[in-house]
Write a protein that binds this DNA or RNA. Structure first.
Lengths: 237, 237
DNA sequence: ATTAGGCTCGCTATTTATGGGGAGGCCATA
DNA sequence: TATGGCCTCCCCATAAATAGCGAGCCTAAT
């Protein structure tokens, strides 16, 4: 690891406030001499946490236009495990092209490298480096610091989680074994009757499990319960 | 990063077979001069993938006794983001104590350090170092190689995912904007009527979107469609 | 320019889910 | 031993989802 990134890692571990977190993104940007460094996450209920060097105009624009739903970076990272170079993504759709052009207009660089990070309870965060450069220049930079970035990204996420520690009070509900089986079968598309047959219990009993799981998950209906259980990582279908 | 770990990283990237993956765990164990190195995951359908240096007797015992359900390492890691030193975990329950004693009898060391790794579709993997040592010796080793381990763990996971790459052929269906909005609202727990009101369309129209999305997703019912959309990463709730 | 796909609405009928209520036994932990 | 959580079953009434039919308009791509 380069000495300056090593120092940066020490620094970020001492960060105590959101302002410190924000200026850490700026420090890293300056250290790497690139256009932008951004960390953000979207949690299950659509609440956001983020810091970075994008202009507030671009952030507002992004939210206003609901770009979250068409941003290839989000989609690409959501389906992968490995960091992704923006050039590798699918920018072929019209919406993606419009989005990219708009981003450039708002001062976002043409090159990007994003590391997806996943945490407990379905947390999903993105750590992005962005710059204006040729493919060659960018690839050279990335391949040089690739590995260090994984560690840096994780340090950012660790800090972010520490700030949201209040959230950890929302402990993931503990479902009983039967509740888990029941909701898993429902999530797989079985009807109540089928799921009950599968578990060898009466449909009424199954209903009790689903209802109870639903209450524990704070869900409005069965479909919502399945959605919450999935995005909280309580069940895996 | 120490030079030998650096070399090890180069090596693991050249691994092509499961046997190579397995011997990589052995190489790392020898390199660090510790008792065990283990990588394993449980995927979406409950299939397992794993490699490591635990004795097959212990692995069989673990599965037979269903220790997965009472292992504090699993529980602890599932709810955290950061790597965990086994000493920090809650071993107070009777089941946990029995489990720990049993593990020692099967040649598992008393010290452990486990890194949780999460991937797309709820993938959850664990990368573990294990050894017999005093707390001081162990803490010294861990704090020395802590950061490198994050990178190593991610390289292991990358390889493991590459072996399972067949799965990535499942092309994700493309939902239209309205279908996406509709199913997202349903996933948030709204009833059809509420979701329709939210989108400003008739309930019937909304129904058509849900049905159409359901067919594209190959789902048996609405709940199943939401589950599939979520785990395919088509929608984010 | 034709086609394919998306968006919008309506109707009817059947099946399924939901939201309450109550009740007994079993096991572990406090 | 008492409490709380889990597992199992039953009843009833209403609300909601499913499955099939048909039809029109608009936009984008071949």
């Amino acid at each position: 690891m380069t000495a300056d990134l090593q120092d940066f890692l020490e620094d970020i571990q001492r960060v105590e406030t959101f302002e410190g977190f924000q200026s850490a993104t700026e420090d890293l940007r300056d250290l790497l001499a690139i256009s932008h460094v951004v960390y953000h996450w979207v949690n299950s209920v659509g609440e956001r946490f983020g810091a970075g060097t994008y202009s507030s105009e671009w952030v507002d624009r992004y939210l206003e236009k609901d770009y979250l739903r068409m941003d290839p970076v989000i989609f690409g990272c959501f389906q992968r495990f490995t960091p992704v170079n923006w050039k590798q993504l699918d920018w072929s759709s019209k919406a993606a092209k419009t989005f990219f052009r708009d981003a450039l207009d708002y001062g976002v660089g043409n090159q990007g490298y994003t590391i997806p990070i996943r945490g407990p309870n379905g947390q999903f965060a993105l750590f992005t480096l962005n710059h204006t450069a040729t493919d060659e220049e960018w690839d050279r930079l990335i391949s040089r610091i690739q590995r260090d970035l994984v560690v840096v990204a994780h340090e950012f996420n660790k800090k972010a989680l520490a700030f949201e520690a209040v959230d950890e009070n929302q402990t993931t509900p503990t479902l009983s074994p039967r509740e888990l089986s029941a909701i898993t079968h429902i999530a797989k598309g079985l009807s109540r009757a089928q799921a009950a047959a599968e578990l060898g219990i009466s449909e009424h009993t199954l209903r009790v499990y689903i209802e109870s799981a639903r209450h524990k998950l704070g869900a409005l209906n069965t479909t919502h319960a399945v959605a919450r259980a999935l995005s909280m990582g309580v069940i895996i279908v």
